[in-house]
């Protein structure tokens, strides 16, 4: 009995860990959609670049003989955020801004093109193979009986805390700051916001930069957690995060958080009680079901079609 309960707890913890990182990446999709009504298909690559940059920084600092882990991680975090948000900004400048006002399909294609370009850019610059770093933060707590030990690693705890901090900061930023208010105004009606003197181009750039920074945080966290990256990880992570954003209601920030957690839990519980083989099938069936009954997603609101 106790064992079954511990097993359940363990799977919930696993699901929350993976779900938190889906949520971090999903924010980027949902914010961009909320503001310009488009899906940024290059967002998964920004996450991938975040992982690569943190690996480079970690490897570099370790080679320089710096061994104090918090310093290495802080440095990796800072540099990953700076580089990834520059990429986010550049993606908006090159793949979206020149096409502002064009048919909605056109920026979609240019974003897919950007995604393919970035993947191949990293393949050429860093090689197509898996790169790995040794575990930086090991250990954790275990609890349970002799037969089954549930565990919560320090790394998982760090992921929870970091996600919580990022999400709280983002919520505060959106609801309290001047730029946050401008974001909400632009999301509601971009033309009106423009007429009222809001620099909408700046707001859109800021949205891409914020989304990219959170993706960089996810990139670092997942990079540390798994210890492995290759140039193609952005595709699957992007797909999952996009699913999470749609599940929660694309365009809604709390929806992306909720969607990420639900997706993570569904995956982990399916793997636990049915089979790993059915993980993706069940998650995506859930998505279809939710969209059938609630086409706007869990927390999405009915929106007037933007022209």
């Amino acid at each position: 009995m106790l064992e079954a309960f511990l097993y359940f707890i363990q799977q919930i913890l696993n699901g929350l860990t993976i779900g938190s990182t889906y949520a971090l990446i999903a924010i980027g999709y949902t914010m961009v959609y909320g503001i310009i009504g488009m899906i940024n298909f290059a967002h998964g690559e920004v996450y991938m670049i975040g992982t690569y940059v943190s690996f480079v920084v970690i490897a570099g600092l370790t080679m320089l003989g710096i061994e104090y882990v918090p310093i290495i991680i802080l440095a990796a975090l800072t540099i990953a955020i700076i580089v990834s948000s520059s990429f986010g900004w550049a993606i908006e400048r090159t793949a979206y801004r020149p096409l502002r006002g064009a048919n909605r399909l056109i920026p979609l294609i240019s974003a897919i093109g950007m995604s393919i370009f970035l993947q191949n850019f990293v393949v050429n610059a860093q090689g197509a193979r898996d790169v790995a770093i040794p575990p930086m933060i090991s250990g954790g707590w275990t609890f349970g009986t002799e037969n089954f030990q549930a565990s919560l690693s320090y790394m998982q705890l760090i992921i929870f805390i970091a996600t919580f901090i990022c999400m709280s900061a983002l919520t505060l930023f959106i609801s309290k700051s001047r730029m946050g208010r401008a974001c909400r105004a632009v999301a509601e009606d971009i033309k009106m916001a423009n007429l009222l003197g809001i620099n909408t181009n700046r707001v859109i750039s800021a949205t891409f930069v914020i989304g990219a920074s959170l993706a960089a945080v996810a990139g670092l966290l997942l990079g540390l957690y798994y210890g492995v990256a290759n140039p193609h990880i952005g595709f699957i992570a992007g797909l999952k995060a996009f699913t999470a954003a749609v599940l929660g209601g694309i365009g809604s920030i709390p929806g992306a958080m909720l969607g990420g957690i639900i997706l993570g839990l569904t995956e982990s519980l399916t793997a636990a009680y049915i089979s790993s083989e059915w993980k993706d099938a069940v998650s995506f069936s859930l998505l279809v079901l939710i969209l059938l009954f609630k086409p706007t997603g869990l927390l999405g609101k009915q929106e007037v079609e933007k022209v």
Binding site: E3, Y7, Q10, Q11, N14, G15, T17, I18, N147, F148, Q149, A150, L222, Y226, V228, H232, I233, I236, E267, S268, L269, A271, A272, S275, S276, E277, K279, D280
Partner: peptide, 22 residues
């Protein structure tokens, strides 16, 4: 006897399952 998805990164659920099955 169970399949996983090629390209997956997270196997924590699978490992917990293996632990439980001794």
């Amino acid at each position: 006897f169970e399949g996983i998805t090629s390209g997956d990164k997270d196997f924590s659920s699978l490992i917990a399952k293996l632990q439980k099955a001794n």
